[in-house]
Design a protein around this nucleic acid. Structure first.
Lengths: 230, 230
DNA sequence: AGTTATAATATTGTCAGACCAATTTTTATT
DNA sequence: AATAAAAATTGGTCTGACAATATTATAACT
Protein backbone atom coordinates (compact mmCIF):
# COMPACT_ATOMS: atom_id res chain seq x y z
CA UNK A 1 0.00 0.00 0.00
CA UNK A 2 1.13 3.53 -0.58
CA UNK A 3 3.58 3.96 -3.40
CA UNK A 4 2.20 3.14 -6.79
CA UNK A 5 4.25 3.13 -9.94
CA UNK A 6 3.31 6.19 -11.93
CA UNK A 7 1.58 5.39 -15.15
CA UNK A 8 2.72 6.63 -18.50
CA UNK A 9 -0.37 8.77 -18.68
CA UNK A 10 0.57 10.52 -15.45
CA UNK A 11 4.06 11.14 -16.74
CA UNK A 12 2.68 12.63 -19.94
CA UNK A 13 0.32 14.80 -17.92
CA UNK A 14 3.27 16.14 -15.99
CA UNK A 15 5.23 16.76 -19.13
CA UNK A 16 2.38 18.67 -20.67
CA UNK A 17 1.89 20.78 -17.56
CA UNK A 18 5.55 21.61 -17.48
CA UNK A 19 5.47 22.51 -21.12
CA UNK A 20 2.63 24.91 -20.54
CA UNK A 21 4.30 26.49 -17.55
CA UNK A 22 7.75 26.64 -19.16
CA UNK A 23 6.47 28.29 -22.30
CA UNK A 24 4.11 30.52 -20.40
CA UNK A 25 1.16 29.49 -22.48
CA UNK A 26 -1.97 31.42 -21.72
CA UNK A 27 -5.68 30.66 -21.99
CA UNK A 28 -6.73 30.50 -25.61
CA UNK A 29 -3.29 29.65 -26.95
CA UNK A 30 -3.09 26.80 -29.40
CA UNK A 31 -1.38 23.77 -27.99
CA UNK A 32 0.38 20.83 -29.62
CA UNK A 33 -1.78 18.39 -31.52
CA UNK A 34 -2.13 14.75 -30.56
CA UNK A 35 0.20 13.76 -33.35
CA UNK A 36 2.84 16.27 -32.34
CA UNK A 37 2.69 15.04 -28.77
CA UNK A 38 2.97 11.44 -29.91
CA UNK A 39 6.04 12.29 -31.95
CA UNK A 40 7.68 14.39 -29.25
CA UNK A 41 6.94 12.16 -26.29
CA UNK A 42 7.33 8.87 -28.11
CA UNK A 43 4.27 7.27 -26.61
CA UNK A 44 1.15 5.83 -28.17
CA UNK A 45 -1.73 8.00 -29.22
CA UNK A 46 -3.84 6.24 -26.58
CA UNK A 47 -1.65 7.58 -23.80
CA UNK A 48 -1.58 11.08 -25.24
CA UNK A 49 -5.34 11.10 -25.65
CA UNK A 50 -5.99 9.88 -22.13
CA UNK A 51 -3.62 12.49 -20.75
CA UNK A 52 -5.34 15.24 -22.73
CA UNK A 53 -8.78 14.07 -21.66
CA UNK A 54 -7.69 14.11 -18.07
CA UNK A 55 -6.27 17.59 -18.44
CA UNK A 56 -9.44 18.72 -20.13
CA UNK A 57 -11.47 17.37 -17.24
CA UNK A 58 -9.59 19.50 -14.77
CA UNK A 59 -9.84 22.53 -17.00
CA UNK A 60 -6.30 22.88 -18.20
CA UNK A 61 -6.82 22.30 -21.89
CA UNK A 62 -9.73 22.30 -24.28
CA UNK A 63 -9.99 19.79 -27.09
CA UNK A 64 -11.74 20.93 -30.23
CA UNK A 65 -12.74 18.06 -32.50
CA UNK A 66 -10.94 18.55 -35.76
CA UNK A 67 -9.54 21.81 -34.57
CA UNK A 68 -6.78 20.95 -32.16
CA UNK A 69 -5.91 21.36 -28.50
CA UNK A 70 -6.01 24.71 -26.75
CA UNK A 71 -5.17 26.08 -23.35
CA UNK A 72 -8.44 26.37 -21.48
CA UNK A 73 -9.87 29.63 -20.21
CA UNK A 74 -9.35 28.86 -16.59
CA UNK A 75 -10.14 31.31 -13.91
CA UNK A 76 -11.25 28.64 -11.49
CA UNK A 77 -13.97 28.14 -14.03
CA UNK A 78 -13.17 24.48 -14.34
CA UNK A 79 -14.32 23.94 -10.80
CA UNK A 80 -17.79 24.39 -12.12
CA UNK A 81 -17.29 21.33 -14.23
CA UNK A 82 -16.33 19.33 -11.22
CA UNK A 83 -19.19 20.66 -9.18
CA UNK A 84 -21.53 19.77 -11.99
CA UNK A 85 -20.18 16.24 -12.09
CA UNK A 86 -20.44 16.09 -8.35
CA UNK A 87 -23.97 17.38 -8.33
CA UNK A 88 -25.10 15.03 -11.07
CA UNK A 89 -23.49 12.08 -9.35
CA UNK A 90 -24.41 12.59 -5.74
CA UNK A 91 -27.11 15.19 -5.80
CA UNK A 92 -26.99 18.06 -3.37
CA UNK A 93 -29.44 19.55 -0.96
CA UNK A 94 -30.81 22.85 -2.18
CA UNK A 95 -31.15 24.15 1.31
CA UNK A 96 -27.43 23.69 1.85
CA UNK A 97 -26.63 25.79 -1.17
CA UNK A 98 -28.98 28.54 -0.14
CA UNK A 99 -27.43 28.62 3.29
CA UNK A 100 -24.01 28.94 1.73
CA UNK A 101 -25.15 31.77 -0.51
CA UNK A 102 -26.55 33.56 2.47
CA UNK A 103 -23.30 33.18 4.39
CA UNK A 104 -21.36 34.51 1.43
CA UNK A 105 -23.59 37.50 0.89
CA UNK A 106 -23.52 38.37 4.56
CA UNK A 107 -19.77 37.97 4.39
CA UNK A 108 -19.55 40.38 1.48
CA UNK A 109 -21.35 43.02 3.49
CA UNK A 110 -18.93 42.51 6.33
CA UNK A 111 -15.88 42.77 4.10
CA UNK A 112 -17.16 45.92 2.45
CA UNK A 113 -17.75 47.67 5.74
CA UNK A 114 -14.78 46.37 7.70
CA UNK A 115 -12.38 47.16 4.88
CA UNK A 116 -14.03 50.55 4.48
CA UNK A 117 -14.48 50.05 0.79
CA UNK A 118 -15.32 53.19 -1.13
CA UNK A 119 -18.57 51.95 -2.61
CA UNK A 120 -20.00 53.30 -5.82
CA UNK A 121 -23.40 53.96 -4.33
CA UNK A 122 -24.72 55.62 -7.46
CA UNK A 123 -24.00 52.61 -9.58
CA UNK A 124 -25.69 50.27 -7.12
CA UNK A 125 -28.75 52.50 -7.07
CA UNK A 126 -28.80 52.59 -10.85
CA UNK A 127 -28.77 48.81 -11.00
CA UNK A 128 -31.55 48.63 -8.47
CA UNK A 129 -33.59 51.17 -10.39
CA UNK A 130 -33.19 49.11 -13.55
CA UNK A 131 -34.36 46.20 -11.46
CA UNK A 132 -37.43 48.18 -10.48
CA UNK A 133 -38.16 49.04 -14.09
CA UNK A 134 -38.10 45.41 -15.17
CA UNK A 135 -40.48 44.60 -12.34
CA UNK A 136 -43.15 47.11 -13.27
CA UNK A 137 -42.70 46.35 -16.96
CA UNK A 138 -43.16 42.69 -16.08
CA UNK A 139 -39.94 41.79 -17.83
CA UNK A 140 -37.38 39.26 -16.69
CA UNK A 141 -36.01 40.49 -13.38
CA UNK A 142 -33.25 37.94 -12.85
CA UNK A 143 -30.60 39.87 -14.75
CA UNK A 144 -30.55 42.96 -12.58
CA UNK A 145 -31.10 41.05 -9.39
CA UNK A 146 -28.03 38.99 -10.12
CA UNK A 147 -26.13 42.06 -11.20
CA UNK A 148 -26.88 43.73 -7.91
CA UNK A 149 -25.55 40.85 -5.88
CA UNK A 150 -22.57 40.44 -8.15
CA UNK A 151 -21.71 44.08 -7.69
CA UNK A 152 -21.62 43.57 -3.95
CA UNK A 153 -19.34 40.57 -4.35
CA UNK A 154 -17.01 42.50 -6.62
CA UNK A 155 -16.95 45.41 -4.24
CA UNK A 156 -15.27 43.29 -1.57
CA UNK A 157 -11.95 43.87 -3.32
CA UNK A 158 -11.21 40.16 -3.00
CA UNK A 159 -11.01 38.46 -6.35
CA UNK A 160 -10.78 34.96 -4.94
CA UNK A 161 -13.87 35.60 -2.85
CA UNK A 162 -15.67 36.86 -5.94
CA UNK A 163 -14.60 33.81 -7.91
CA UNK A 164 -15.90 31.50 -5.22
CA UNK A 165 -19.18 33.33 -5.04
CA UNK A 166 -19.56 32.93 -8.78
CA UNK A 167 -18.81 29.25 -8.46
CA UNK A 168 -21.49 28.90 -5.83
CA UNK A 169 -23.90 30.79 -8.06
CA UNK A 170 -23.15 28.49 -10.95
CA UNK A 171 -23.56 25.51 -8.69
CA UNK A 172 -26.81 27.00 -7.49
CA UNK A 173 -28.04 27.49 -11.02
CA UNK A 174 -27.78 23.75 -11.55
CA UNK A 175 -30.71 23.45 -9.22
CA UNK A 176 -33.72 24.36 -11.21
CA UNK A 177 -35.71 26.20 -8.63
CA UNK A 178 -38.58 28.31 -9.79
CA UNK A 179 -39.49 30.71 -7.10
CA UNK A 180 -42.50 32.31 -8.71
CA UNK A 181 -42.66 35.76 -7.27
CA UNK A 182 -45.54 38.12 -7.65
CA UNK A 183 -45.03 41.81 -8.24
CA UNK A 184 -45.54 42.63 -4.60
CA UNK A 185 -42.77 40.24 -3.54
CA UNK A 186 -40.46 41.61 -6.19
CA UNK A 187 -41.04 45.17 -5.12
CA UNK A 188 -40.32 44.14 -1.55
CA UNK A 189 -37.09 42.66 -2.86
CA UNK A 190 -36.31 45.95 -4.58
CA UNK A 191 -36.91 47.84 -1.34
CA UNK A 192 -34.57 45.51 0.50
CA UNK A 193 -31.86 46.14 -2.05
CA UNK A 194 -32.32 49.85 -1.45
CA UNK A 195 -32.12 49.35 2.29
CA UNK A 196 -28.94 47.36 1.93
CA UNK A 197 -27.39 50.12 -0.14
CA UNK A 198 -28.42 52.67 2.43
CA UNK A 199 -27.06 50.62 5.33
CA UNK A 200 -23.78 50.15 3.52
CA UNK A 201 -23.46 53.83 2.75
CA UNK A 202 -23.95 54.49 6.46
CA UNK A 203 -21.46 51.76 7.38
CA UNK A 204 -24.03 49.91 9.45
CA UNK A 205 -23.07 46.25 9.28
CA UNK A 206 -25.66 44.82 11.64
CA UNK A 207 -28.44 46.62 9.85
CA UNK A 208 -27.26 45.60 6.40
CA UNK A 209 -26.97 42.00 7.49
CA UNK A 210 -30.40 42.13 9.05
CA UNK A 211 -31.95 43.27 5.79
CA UNK A 212 -30.00 40.70 3.82
CA UNK A 213 -31.25 37.99 6.17
CA UNK A 214 -34.81 39.14 5.56
CA UNK A 215 -34.00 39.16 1.88
CA UNK A 216 -33.35 35.43 2.04
CA UNK A 217 -36.48 34.62 3.99
CA UNK A 218 -38.83 34.00 1.03
CA UNK A 219 -36.56 31.42 -0.52
CA UNK A 220 -36.12 29.56 2.77
CA UNK A 221 -39.86 29.54 3.22
CA UNK A 222 -40.23 28.20 -0.29
CA UNK A 223 -37.69 25.46 0.27
CA UNK A 224 -39.27 24.40 3.52
CA UNK A 225 -42.61 24.11 1.77
CA UNK A 226 -40.99 22.02 -0.94
CA UNK A 227 -39.50 19.68 1.63
CA UNK A 228 -42.83 19.24 3.37
CA UNK A 229 -44.43 18.16 0.13
CA UNK A 230 -41.92 15.44 -0.59
CA UNK B 1 -20.52 28.60 -31.55
CA UNK B 2 -22.92 27.33 -28.94
CA UNK B 3 -24.34 23.92 -29.55
CA UNK B 4 -21.83 21.14 -29.92
CA UNK B 5 -22.75 17.58 -30.64
CA UNK B 6 -22.20 15.53 -27.53
CA UNK B 7 -19.50 12.93 -27.89
CA UNK B 8 -19.95 9.29 -27.06
CA UNK B 9 -17.58 9.70 -24.17
CA UNK B 10 -19.79 12.41 -22.69
CA UNK B 11 -22.81 10.19 -23.04
CA UNK B 12 -21.04 7.35 -21.29
CA UNK B 13 -19.95 9.72 -18.54
CA UNK B 14 -23.56 10.69 -18.04
CA UNK B 15 -24.67 7.09 -17.95
CA UNK B 16 -22.07 6.22 -15.38
CA UNK B 17 -23.01 9.14 -13.17
CA UNK B 18 -26.64 8.18 -13.37
CA UNK B 19 -25.76 4.63 -12.45
CA UNK B 20 -23.89 5.79 -9.38
CA UNK B 21 -26.71 8.10 -8.34
CA UNK B 22 -29.45 5.57 -9.06
CA UNK B 23 -27.75 2.79 -7.15
CA UNK B 24 -26.64 5.07 -4.38
CA UNK B 25 -23.05 3.94 -4.65
CA UNK B 26 -20.81 5.33 -1.97
CA UNK B 27 -17.10 6.07 -1.73
CA UNK B 28 -15.11 2.88 -1.62
CA UNK B 29 -17.71 0.77 -3.37
CA UNK B 30 -16.51 -1.41 -6.20
CA UNK B 31 -17.77 -0.24 -9.56
CA UNK B 32 -18.26 -2.03 -12.84
CA UNK B 33 -15.16 -3.09 -14.71
CA UNK B 34 -14.24 -1.77 -18.12
CA UNK B 35 -15.43 -4.98 -19.72
CA UNK B 36 -18.76 -4.89 -17.94
CA UNK B 37 -19.27 -1.30 -19.03
CA UNK B 38 -18.36 -2.18 -22.60
CA UNK B 39 -20.90 -5.01 -22.58
CA UNK B 40 -23.64 -3.00 -20.92
CA UNK B 41 -23.21 0.22 -22.85
CA UNK B 42 -22.28 -1.33 -26.17
CA UNK B 43 -19.42 1.01 -26.89
CA UNK B 44 -15.76 0.42 -27.49
CA UNK B 45 -13.31 -0.01 -24.68
CA UNK B 46 -11.61 3.18 -25.82
CA UNK B 47 -14.71 5.21 -25.04
CA UNK B 48 -15.25 3.52 -21.70
CA UNK B 49 -11.66 4.07 -20.70
CA UNK B 50 -11.70 7.73 -21.68
CA UNK B 51 -14.92 8.24 -19.75
CA UNK B 52 -13.45 6.57 -16.67
CA UNK B 53 -10.24 8.59 -16.93
CA UNK B 54 -12.28 11.75 -17.09
CA UNK B 55 -14.36 10.73 -14.10
CA UNK B 56 -11.23 9.88 -12.21
CA UNK B 57 -9.84 13.30 -12.94
CA UNK B 58 -12.85 14.97 -11.41
CA UNK B 59 -12.69 12.74 -8.39
CA UNK B 60 -15.68 10.53 -8.90
CA UNK B 61 -14.02 7.17 -9.44
CA UNK B 62 -10.64 5.65 -8.75
CA UNK B 63 -9.04 3.22 -11.15
CA UNK B 64 -6.82 0.56 -9.65
CA UNK B 65 -4.56 -1.07 -12.20
CA UNK B 66 -5.47 -4.70 -12.37
CA UNK B 67 -7.88 -4.28 -9.49
CA UNK B 68 -10.90 -2.60 -10.97
CA UNK B 69 -12.81 0.65 -10.70
CA UNK B 70 -14.00 2.07 -7.42
CA UNK B 71 -16.05 5.03 -6.27
CA UNK B 72 -13.57 7.66 -5.09
CA UNK B 73 -13.36 8.38 -1.39
CA UNK B 74 -13.04 12.12 -1.35
CA UNK B 75 -16.03 14.13 -2.31
CA UNK B 76 -14.97 17.34 -4.02
CA UNK B 77 -11.42 16.30 -3.25
CA UNK B 78 -10.22 16.74 -6.77
CA UNK B 79 -10.96 20.44 -6.62
CA UNK B 80 -7.76 20.72 -4.66
CA UNK B 81 -5.87 19.59 -7.71
CA UNK B 82 -7.40 22.37 -9.71
CA UNK B 83 -6.79 24.94 -7.04
CA UNK B 84 -3.20 23.85 -6.82
CA UNK B 85 -2.70 24.29 -10.52
CA UNK B 86 -4.50 27.59 -10.39
CA UNK B 87 -2.39 28.73 -7.53
CA UNK B 88 0.84 27.67 -9.20
CA UNK B 89 -0.15 29.32 -12.44
CA UNK B 90 -1.75 32.53 -11.41
CA UNK B 91 -0.80 32.99 -7.79
CA UNK B 92 -3.23 34.09 -5.16
CA UNK B 93 -3.19 36.70 -2.47
CA UNK B 94 -2.87 35.25 1.00
CA UNK B 95 -4.91 38.04 2.49
CA UNK B 96 -7.82 37.13 0.28
CA UNK B 97 -7.77 33.56 1.50
CA UNK B 98 -7.64 34.60 5.12
CA UNK B 99 -10.61 36.89 4.59
CA UNK B 100 -12.53 34.04 3.07
CA UNK B 101 -11.69 31.75 5.92
CA UNK B 102 -12.88 34.35 8.35
CA UNK B 103 -16.16 34.78 6.50
CA UNK B 104 -16.68 31.03 6.49
CA UNK B 105 -15.95 30.60 10.16
CA UNK B 106 -18.22 33.47 11.08
CA UNK B 107 -20.83 31.90 8.84
CA UNK B 108 -20.50 28.59 10.62
CA UNK B 109 -21.24 30.28 13.94
CA UNK B 110 -24.31 31.87 12.41
CA UNK B 111 -25.60 28.63 10.98
CA UNK B 112 -25.10 26.79 14.25
CA UNK B 113 -27.03 29.35 16.22
CA UNK B 114 -29.74 30.21 13.71
CA UNK B 115 -30.46 26.56 13.04
CA UNK B 116 -30.41 25.90 16.77
CA UNK B 117 -28.01 23.04 16.35
CA UNK B 118 -27.74 20.80 19.39
CA UNK B 119 -24.01 21.22 19.88
CA UNK B 120 -21.86 18.65 21.61
CA UNK B 121 -20.31 21.15 23.97
CA UNK B 122 -18.44 18.48 25.90
CA UNK B 123 -16.66 17.26 22.83
CA UNK B 124 -15.65 20.78 21.81
CA UNK B 125 -14.27 21.40 25.28
CA UNK B 126 -12.38 18.13 25.17
CA UNK B 127 -10.76 19.11 21.89
CA UNK B 128 -9.85 22.49 23.29
CA UNK B 129 -8.39 20.92 26.40
CA UNK B 130 -6.26 18.64 24.24
CA UNK B 131 -5.22 21.78 22.43
CA UNK B 132 -4.19 23.29 25.74
CA UNK B 133 -2.18 20.22 26.66
CA UNK B 134 -0.19 20.33 23.44
CA UNK B 135 0.53 23.99 24.10
CA UNK B 136 1.98 23.54 27.56
CA UNK B 137 3.80 20.39 26.48
CA UNK B 138 5.22 22.41 23.61
CA UNK B 139 4.03 19.84 21.11
CA UNK B 140 2.57 20.53 17.71
CA UNK B 141 -0.62 22.48 18.26
CA UNK B 142 -1.92 22.54 14.72
CA UNK B 143 -3.77 19.25 14.92
CA UNK B 144 -6.19 20.20 17.69
CA UNK B 145 -6.58 23.75 16.48
CA UNK B 146 -7.68 22.46 13.12
CA UNK B 147 -9.86 19.83 14.74
CA UNK B 148 -11.62 22.51 16.73
CA UNK B 149 -12.46 24.56 13.69
CA UNK B 150 -13.40 21.50 11.69
CA UNK B 151 -15.80 20.47 14.43
CA UNK B 152 -17.54 23.80 14.13
CA UNK B 153 -17.82 23.40 10.37
CA UNK B 154 -19.24 19.93 10.73
CA UNK B 155 -21.69 21.09 13.35
CA UNK B 156 -23.41 23.32 10.81
CA UNK B 157 -25.29 20.29 9.53
CA UNK B 158 -24.46 21.35 6.00
CA UNK B 159 -22.21 18.88 4.26
CA UNK B 160 -21.64 21.06 1.21
CA UNK B 161 -20.60 23.93 3.43
CA UNK B 162 -18.22 21.65 5.26
CA UNK B 163 -16.75 20.41 1.99
CA UNK B 164 -16.15 23.95 0.82
CA UNK B 165 -14.52 24.91 4.07
CA UNK B 166 -12.18 21.96 3.71
CA UNK B 167 -11.34 23.04 0.19
CA UNK B 168 -10.51 26.51 1.37
CA UNK B 169 -8.34 25.02 4.08
CA UNK B 170 -6.50 22.88 1.58
CA UNK B 171 -6.08 25.86 -0.68
CA UNK B 172 -4.85 27.81 2.28
CA UNK B 173 -2.32 25.13 3.11
CA UNK B 174 -0.71 25.69 -0.29
CA UNK B 175 0.42 29.00 1.04
CA UNK B 176 3.35 28.28 3.24
CA UNK B 177 2.73 30.74 5.98
CA UNK B 178 4.59 30.24 9.20
CA UNK B 179 2.92 32.21 11.86
CA UNK B 180 5.33 31.55 14.68
CA UNK B 181 3.31 31.87 17.83
CA UNK B 182 4.70 32.01 21.29
CA UNK B 183 3.07 30.23 24.20
CA UNK B 184 1.29 33.34 25.34
CA UNK B 185 -0.37 33.82 21.97
CA UNK B 186 -1.35 30.18 21.83
CA UNK B 187 -2.92 30.30 25.26
CA UNK B 188 -4.82 33.37 24.21
CA UNK B 189 -6.01 31.36 21.22
CA UNK B 190 -7.09 28.59 23.57
CA UNK B 191 -9.04 31.07 25.67
CA UNK B 192 -10.79 32.39 22.60
CA UNK B 193 -11.81 28.89 21.64
CA UNK B 194 -13.31 28.49 25.09
CA UNK B 195 -15.11 31.79 24.76
CA UNK B 196 -16.53 30.76 21.42
CA UNK B 197 -17.80 27.52 22.89
CA UNK B 198 -19.36 29.42 25.77
CA UNK B 199 -21.02 31.95 23.47
CA UNK B 200 -22.40 29.18 21.30
CA UNK B 201 -23.79 27.30 24.27
CA UNK B 202 -25.54 30.50 25.29
CA UNK B 203 -26.76 31.06 21.73
CA UNK B 204 -25.10 34.46 21.56
CA UNK B 205 -24.23 35.00 17.91
CA UNK B 206 -22.86 38.54 18.12
CA UNK B 207 -20.60 37.61 20.98
CA UNK B 208 -19.33 34.44 19.31
CA UNK B 209 -18.60 36.34 16.11
CA UNK B 210 -16.84 39.06 18.02
CA UNK B 211 -14.50 36.55 19.64
CA UNK B 212 -13.92 34.81 16.33
CA UNK B 213 -13.05 38.15 14.75
CA UNK B 214 -10.51 38.74 17.49
CA UNK B 215 -9.27 35.23 16.92
CA UNK B 216 -8.29 36.20 13.38
CA UNK B 217 -6.56 39.41 14.36
CA UNK B 218 -3.04 38.03 14.84
CA UNK B 219 -2.92 36.51 11.40
CA UNK B 220 -4.14 39.70 9.74
CA UNK B 221 -1.53 41.64 11.64
CA UNK B 222 1.10 39.18 10.49
CA UNK B 223 0.02 39.42 6.88
CA UNK B 224 0.01 43.17 6.92
CA UNK B 225 3.55 43.13 8.25
CA UNK B 226 4.54 40.74 5.49
CA UNK B 227 3.09 43.01 2.87
CA UNK B 228 4.91 46.04 4.23
CA UNK B 229 8.21 44.21 3.92
CA UNK B 230 7.76 43.34 0.28
C1' DA C 1 -9.00 -28.22 8.37
C1' DG C 2 -6.10 -24.49 7.80
C1' DT C 3 -2.24 -22.25 5.78
C1' DT C 4 0.72 -21.39 2.14
C1' DA C 5 2.54 -21.62 -2.45
C1' DT C 6 1.22 -21.83 -7.11
C1' DA C 7 -1.49 -21.44 -11.14
C1' DA C 8 -5.40 -19.54 -13.54
C1' DT C 9 -8.22 -15.76 -14.31
C1' DA C 10 -9.75 -11.09 -14.39
C1' DT C 11 -8.59 -6.33 -14.92
C1' DT C 12 -6.24 -2.32 -16.18
C1' DG C 13 -2.11 -0.25 -19.12
C1' DT C 14 -0.15 0.39 -23.50
C1' DC C 15 0.40 -0.24 -28.30
C1' DA C 16 -0.73 -0.33 -33.39
C1' DG C 17 -3.58 0.42 -37.22
C1' DA C 18 -7.76 1.64 -39.33
C1' DC C 19 -11.73 4.49 -40.62
C1' DC C 20 -15.02 8.35 -39.72
C1' DA C 21 -16.24 13.25 -38.74
C1' DA C 22 -15.11 17.86 -38.16
C1' DT C 23 -12.04 21.56 -38.96
C1' DT C 24 -8.46 23.96 -41.18
C1' DT C 25 -5.57 24.84 -44.97
C1' DT C 26 -4.60 24.76 -49.66
C1' DT C 27 -5.80 24.97 -54.33
C1' DA C 28 -8.60 26.06 -58.16
C1' DT C 29 -12.13 28.90 -60.11
C1' DT C 30 -14.42 32.96 -61.05
C1' DA D 1 -9.56 39.46 -54.56
C1' DA D 2 -13.24 36.76 -53.26
C1' DT D 3 -15.29 32.44 -53.42
C1' DA D 4 -15.80 27.56 -53.86
C1' DA D 5 -13.92 23.11 -54.07
C1' DA D 6 -10.40 19.86 -52.79
C1' DA D 7 -6.90 18.23 -49.79
C1' DA D 8 -4.65 17.80 -45.51
C1' DT D 9 -4.89 18.02 -40.63
C1' DT D 10 -6.96 16.77 -36.39
C1' DG D 11 -9.82 14.71 -33.10
C1' DG D 12 -13.52 10.56 -32.29
C1' DT D 13 -14.33 5.78 -32.28
C1' DC D 14 -13.49 0.95 -33.19
C1' DT D 15 -10.92 -3.45 -33.14
C1' DG D 16 -7.52 -6.54 -31.68
C1' DA D 17 -3.47 -7.65 -29.34
C1' DC D 18 -0.15 -8.19 -25.61
C1' DA D 19 1.90 -6.70 -21.06
C1' DA D 20 1.57 -5.66 -16.14
C1' DT D 21 -0.87 -6.04 -12.09
C1' DA D 22 -4.37 -7.79 -8.91
C1' DT D 23 -7.58 -11.14 -7.58
C1' DT D 24 -9.29 -15.65 -7.25
C1' DA D 25 -9.08 -20.55 -7.56
C1' DT D 26 -6.36 -24.54 -7.08
C1' DA D 27 -2.86 -27.54 -5.26
C1' DA D 28 0.39 -28.79 -1.86
C1' DC D 29 1.74 -29.18 2.54
C1' DT D 30 1.52 -29.30 7.54
Amino acid sequence: MGIQKTSLVDIVIDRIKNHILKNGLKPGDKFLSEKELVDQLQVSRTVVREALISLQSVGIVTIKPGGGVYIADTKLGSINTILKHHYETYGVKIKELVEIRKIIELGALRLIIEKQIDLNIGQLNDINESYYQTIIKKEDTKKYDRLFHQSLMKATDNETFYNFSEIINEYFSLVKIDLVQNEEALIQSYREHAEIIKSLSEHKLQQAQKVMTDHFEPIFTFINQMEEQS
